[in-house]
Amino acid sequence: MTVRLVKGSDYYVISPLINDWWNGRQMSDLLPKLFFDHFKNTSFIVEEEGEIIGFLIGFLSQSYSNEAYIHFVGIHPEYRGKGIGRQLYNQFFDVIKQSGRNIVRCVTSPVNKASIAYHTKMGFEIEQWNKDNQDKVLFVKYLN
């Protein structure tokens, strides 16, 4: 397994896979190509034998100088539970700490119970659970 920075062409490989990786949920519209073009230094791909098996798309906040945001993370269903997500998150944490950031934010849907459990296991706190308006679970993690 190798971890590398994303490149623009990765979009064309990942985009057709996203809905399948999310069991048919329509998720691909949430990850336009601009993320692959403009956040290359803070977004990562995991490959095994040349196949993309995981990715993390994140960026440094332009508005809050001590914050970063994880926009999208995906792990091929056959590779879940093998530490790939943790590896991607830790890679992101290392990069943002080098940029002087110590707060990480992300969001998930309440229907994604696995994501909620995963983020709390990774040390994220639920900052807000907005049940009334387009259900969202907002997470925050403070890095040491």
Results as ranks from 00 to 15, higher is better:
residue 3 V to Q: 07
residue 5 L to E: 14
residue 6 V to C: 01
residue 7 K to T: 13
residue 8 G to Y: 01
residue 8 G to L: 04
residue 9 S to T: 13
residue 10 D to Y: 02
residue 10 D to W: 02
residue 12 Y to W: 10
residue 12 Y to C: 07
residue 15 S to E: 15
residue 19 N to C: 11
residue 21 W to F: 04
residue 23 N to D: 06
residue 23 N to K: 15
residue 25 R to H: 09
residue 26 Q to C: 03
residue 27 M to R: 14
residue 28 S to T: 09
residue 28 S to C: 05
residue 29 D to E: 10
residue 31 L to I: 07
residue 32 P to K: 07
residue 33 K to T: 01
residue 34 L to S: 12
residue 37 D to S: 11
residue 38 H to R: 13
residue 40 K to P: 08
residue 41 N to L: 13
residue 41 N to D: 15
residue 43 S to P: 00
residue 49 E to D: 15
residue 50 G to H: 11
residue 50 G to V: 10
residue 50 G to T: 11
residue 51 E to I: 04
residue 53 I to T: 12
residue 55 F to Q: 03
residue 56 L to C: 05
residue 57 I to Q: 04
residue 60 L to G: 04
residue 60 L to C: 09
residue 62 Q to W: 03
residue 64 Y to S: 10
residue 65 S to R: 09
residue 66 N to E: 12
residue 67 E to A: 12
residue 70 I to S: 01
residue 71 H to M: 09
residue 72 F to N: 01
residue 74 G to H: 03
residue 75 I to W: 02
residue 76 H to K: 09
residue 78 E to Q: 11
residue 81 G to I: 07
residue 82 K to V: 09
residue 87 Q to S: 13
residue 88 L to K: 01
residue 89 Y to R: 06
residue 89 Y to A: 10
residue 89 Y to T: 12
residue 91 Q to R: 12
residue 92 F to P: 00
residue 93 F to Q: 01
residue 93 F to C: 01
residue 93 F to W: 02
residue 94 D to N: 12
residue 95 V to H: 07
residue 95 V to E: 06
residue 98 Q to S: 09
residue 99 S to Q: 14
residue 100 G to C: 06
residue 102 N to C: 07
residue 103 I to S: 06
residue 103 I to P: 02
residue 104 V to I: 14
residue 105 R to E: 12
residue 105 R to T: 13
residue 108 T to F: 14
residue 109 S to V: 09
residue 110 P to Y: 05
residue 114 A to H: 14
residue 114 A to G: 09
residue 116 I to V: 14
residue 117 A to E: 09
residue 118 Y to C: 10
residue 122 M to P: 00
residue 124 F to W: 04
residue 125 E to K: 07
residue 125 E to W: 00
residue 128 Q to F: 08
residue 128 Q to H: 08
residue 130 N to M: 08
residue 130 N to P: 00
residue 133 N to Q: 14
residue 134 Q to D: 15
residue 134 Q to K: 13
residue 135 D to L: 10
residue 135 D to C: 11
residue 136 K to M: 13
residue 137 V to K: 01
residue 137 V to Q: 02
residue 138 L to M: 11
residue 139 F to E: 09
residue 139 F to S: 05
residue 139 F to C: 07
